[in-house]
């Protein structure tokens, strides 16, 4: 029973949702529109599991006085601060006149978001600029014909997308300067390659989904 019911749920829900694509009539059209809400509600419960797991691991580090227990307590502290502002200002805003949201400018939550969260995530994201450069220096090698093609395409695109590419190829006839080559690479071979990948992915995805719906793939459901 522990496995049969979930498999039946997957099968029924999957079939109904797939068929709903062709059936404009309620309740089928409704399922599709409501799934976003359902998923959100279930995920909102699930995040408790994640948050508790994070807290448990950090707390264990502190309890065992591992060398990095300071960092573990920083995790717990900043998590709690964010939660505090989120709940406190969220409820305050709900009963205030006029209403405001915890995300509005001027709230503590937004302040933390803007000056801490955004600064950190944007900088983490931006570090990639340096990693890209170091990878270009060390990893991108013309080992074989395939790798060479990759590099040549990258070369044209990178130069063609900034003015210097055209400045270097002014001697070429009009319509054949670097930016034109870049445009061509993007709209012809790139489109073809992307399309092949996309079609392949779509077919793989459909067949994986079909296996899941038919209950052939069910390891995610665990054992008895």
């Amino acid at each position: 029973m522990k496995r049969e019911i979930p498999i039946a749920i997957t099968f029924i829900v999957g079939t109904v949702f797939a068929l709903a694509y062709f059936i404009p009539r309620e309740p089928f059209s409704l399922f599709e529109r409501q799934f976003g809400d359902w998923f959100g509600i279930i995920a909102a419960f699930a995040i408790w599991l994640g948050a508790l797991n994070l807290m448990k691991i950090s707390a264990m580090k502190i309890a065992r006085k591992k060398p990095d227990f300071i960092y573990a307590s920083l995790i717990i502290l900043s998590f709690l601060v964010m939660i505090f502002f989120g709940f406190y200002e969220g409820y305050k805003g709900l009963f205030a006149e006029p209403q405001f949201s915890y995300r509005d400018a001027g709230t503590g939550f937004n302040w933390l978001y803007e000056y801490v969260y955004s600064a950190l995530s944007a900088t983490m994201f931006a570090l990639l600029a340096f990693f890209v450069a170091s990878a270009s220096y060390r990893a991108f090698r013309a080992r074989n014909l395939e790798a060479t093609l990759l590099l040549i395409a990258a070369f044209f695109v990178m130069l063609g997308r900034v003015p210097v590419g055209d400045m270097l190829t002014t001697w070429m006839p009009i319509g054949y300067t670097m930016s034109d080559w870049a445009n061509w690479i993007m709209s012809v071979p790139n489109t073809a390659g992307q399309r092949a990948i996309m079609i392949g992915i779509a077919l793989g995805l459909v067949s994986t989904s079909l296996r899941i719906i038919l209950g052939l793939e069910r390891s995610y459901l665990g054992g008895e």
Partner: peptide, 24 residues
């Protein structure tokens, strides 16, 4: 560490208000 904590808190709150409160 601040990043991990702040972001986990951010998403926790976002899920709460957007999904449990607004949607449900």
């Amino acid at each position: 560490s601040i990043f991990v904590g702040i972001s986990a808190g951010y998403w926790f709150i976002t899920y709460y208000w957007d999904n449990l409160y607004r949607k449900f």
